[in-house]
Design a protein around this nucleic acid. Structure first.
Length: 185
DNA sequence: AATCGGATCGTCT
DNA sequence: GACGATCCGATTG
């Protein structure tokens, strides 16, 4: 399993969002290893994207979106949920990140079920906050380097051709005309 | 199967 | 002081 290189993330955010489908998200904890194939992503831009946390410039919370690509941007929302992004943008953008919305569990499904307090494998990590809870991702992972084989990283998936469906992003009020949600067919 | 509302708090206005 | 890049359980059809 090869790690995705920094250069993978140094491209247009929308392109990276599409290309992350089928890749493998891996999380190592004291409990063991949990992993899954990325099945849904969303691209978020900078001052040109009213749906993005970076729309109104840099703040303490969204600073990672302006920082080094290939690192994790984790945010807390609705008073109880964490969500994971991979920082990605090309040279022309001042900020950008890809929200990882869903995975298909590969390793550690038992651990994920325990983390989610569910007794069935279905619906374990098919939503951004579910994913974070299943994989024990919180602000402790803010800024982590996803290109190193450590606590949290992303590796290459299959070389098989992948069918991608594009649509509007979920749960936003502005920028709904952009088709920046991507999922595996 | 689809819809509705409550939970809950950090962040920005 | 308002409001989320959400989830879940309850209710209704």
């Amino acid at each position: 399993m090869k790690l995705l290189k920094r250069s993978f993330y140094a491209r247009d955010t929308v392109t990276v969002a599409r290309d992350l489908l089928g890749k493998i998200l891996v999380r190592n904890t004291a409990e063991g290893t949990v992993s899954g194939m990325i099945t849904e992503t969303e691209a978020y831009g900078a001052s040109d994207d009213p749906a993005s946390h970076a729309f109104r410039g840099m703040t303490k919370r969204n600073a990672a979106m302006f920082g080094e690509v290939g690192r994790a941007y984790v945010y807390f929302t609705y008073g109880m949920h964490h969500c994971l992004n991979a920082v990605a943008r090309d040279d022309t953008a001042e900020a950008g990140a890809v929200l990882v919305r869903a995975i298909r569990p590969l390793r550690g499904a038992e651990t994920m079920m325990r983390n989610r307090k569910r007794d069935r494998a279905a619906g374990l990590a098919d939503g951004p906050a579910k994913l974070a809870q299943a994989m024990e991702i919180s602000r402790d992972q803010y800024g982590m380097d996803l290109t190193r084989r450590a606590d949290l990283f992303i590796a290459d998936g299959t070389d098989e051709a992948i069918r991608v469906l594009a649509g509007p992003r979920i749960g936003i009020r502005h920028g709904t005309e952009k088709q920046w949600n991507f999922r595996l067919a």
